[in-house]
Design a protein around this nucleic acid. Structure first.
Lengths: 337, 337
DNA sequence: CTGAAAGCGCTTACAG
DNA sequence: CTGAAAGCGCTTACAG
């Protein structure tokens, strides 16, 4: 190992019979190197186990090789999955992945962002909900011309990388899934209405209801706020407003869990009396009993691709494609088999 | 901002009327600088908003200024809290915090660790359970003489920083808490027996039982594995083995949740029929309904302190104190008020 | 307790 | 398509 650490660009250049500049070009994927030389350099580097010294690159190039993920999300499973996708992409490209939790309690978002950008150099930023919809934050980033990517933004930005799923389509397919299983009395349990995703999922719900010609009176909407507690409370509303309901679409898994716990506590059987489908395929959806049927989005891949595209943008200084839609699937489990 | 970025050690030296070496010494907390000069330098740096260039430090010193947290823990809340504590400490000391998830599926732990240490320089390592009890991993680290810290290790190491809580004492205090609330028929729901923490918590349980002179037949042990599912199943065992039980101590919150869900499903009331205390004070313990009384350990502080001490060790090359015990407290909630 | 010189391993213009 | 020189902003011996 210590032998590896001593290897420099010069050693590789000598072995390969080229100048250090050529080696540098190869490792930066820069143009103007004949393919043949490129192969030789890469071969020598592989044989000797050469790893470029990141600090030297940073210092000389005045770039940081750091991609930072800004978030403010209490859902650590979601944040961890994003980090993992970023980390993989960064490691492939010789970058560092850093996660920064914006703390809205002390001062504004914007302030913590500014503080951060002042203290640390970053080459690119990744924002996830709800930060990805914070226009003040986005303005600050655009002002500094830092390449950035938005994960599941409510409003897609032209000068950014946007990765997302078809929220409305997902809402439709969950509703269809319930309808196909014979449910004729349905409920949608919403998240915070300020989140675009919740509104879009609901739109898909109503579209599917209409298309299946289910009478409007047999389909209700319950208000939640994405918290487990609100799912718990929603069950009481359901009993009052629409006791005949048998199929429920919750806008996230936490609410689905809360609702199921409430239902069990009142002697209802899941899925026999009440079938529930969640959204996110969170680890708890798997661990709960009954386990929860849920719509999965490929968060890890979304983070991985956006990081890759971000690094491409940083290198070429050109934003080629700005929108990437990912597909989802429903994972069938105990709460709605 | 761009003005700040241009500031170098030279600017500060000039302003402060000292050599750059003195400035460097001040920023590295090195000895041999008169306090008066130190204050001047620090004052000038503050006024101008100077931030040392990390890459330059890395390159010149051949240190990475990176502290890496190795883990393999499905509990993302726990991992995130550790990361947050590390990140705070690192940011105070001008270090980078990195989290690396060891993937035991592909190849051994040890291999992924070696791969990592080969690819990246790190100045220090932090290990959390279960990695903190993997002696093969620890051997590799000690062989390389990398300073490291263990969070809640089963076996404390002499040549490492160890941060931990009194697991047995925590088990005692939870049991006492139940006893003080009048429960005379108790159950302990264990985690994986291979985890030292679970065994120690159980030892505390039995100690408290004995001290309170509760007949052994009124206290049972149920086997779990830390999973929510195992808590769910444990309820059936409980009904068979010890139907008179009213007070339950679960070795973690997930099992407490599983057990409560099972109990609710069978028409039991919590806490009226069954009082449950968990361990970890996880976000779900707060969010559940009923919310769960749980023992909280200061994970964030444990990570923060161990990172600080680790950096101190790196700088001085001296490991001063190797053991740090943290205190815990029981957070009273709905499941056992 | 303090300073002037050399060097860490790369990249950036610049020249060809 | 390729190379020799200068320099990024620090720290490390070394000397005093």
């Amino acid at each position: 190992m210590s032998a590896n650490k001593k290897l420099t660009i010069e050693d590789i250049a000598k072995k390969a019979g080229v100048s250090i500049k050529t080696v540098s070009r190869v490792f930066n994927n820069a143009p103007n190197v004949r393919q043949q030389k490129r192969d030789i350099v890469l071969g020598v580097a592989r044989d000797l186990g050469y790893q470029p010294n990141i600090s030297a690159r940073q210092l000389a190039s005045k770039r940081s090789f750091v991609i930072s993920h800004f978030h403010d999300n209490p859902n650590t499973d979601y944040v961890s999955e994003i980090y993992e996708g970023m980390r993989r992409a960064c490691s492939e490209e010789g970058y560092y992945a850093v996660a920064e939790k914006l703390n809205p309690q002390k001062g504004s978002y914007r302030q913590s962002l500014l503080d951060y950008l002042l203290r640390f150099e970053v080459d690119g930023l990744i924002l996830s909900p709800p930060v990805s919809d914070d226009q003040a934050v986005i303005r600050e980033i655009e002002k500094r011309e830092i390449p950035y990517a938005l994960i599941s933004p409510g409003k897609k930005k032209k000068r950014a990388i946007n990765v997302f799923i078809d929220e409305k389509g997902a809402g439709r397919s969950i509703t269809d899934y319930l309808i196909n299983r014979g449910h004729e009395n349905l409920a949608f349990l919403s998240g915070l209405n300020s989140h675009a995703a919740s509104r879009q999922r609901e739109a898909g719900y109503w579209e599917a209801i209409e298309e299946a010609q289910i009478p409007k009176k047999n389909a209700v909407r319950l208000s939640g706020d994405f918290s487990m507690r609100s799912g718990f409370t929603a069950f009481d509303m359901l009993v009052k407003k629409a006791p005949k309901t048998t199929g429920i679409f919750a806008a996230n898994d936490e609410m689905a869990i809360g609702l199921i716990v409430a239902a069990l506590g009142k002697g209802k059987k899941v899925p026999e009396d009440l079938s529930v489908v969640g959204f996110d395929d969170s680890p708890f959806a798997r661990a709960m009993w009954p386990s929860i049927t849920s719509l999965a989005q490929p968060v890890d891949e979304m983070a991985h691709l956006s990081t890759k595209k971000l690094i491409g943008w940083i290198h070429s200084n050109i934003l080629e494609q700005s929108r990437f839609e990912f597909s989802t699937k429903i994972i069938e489990r105990g709460s709605c088999p």
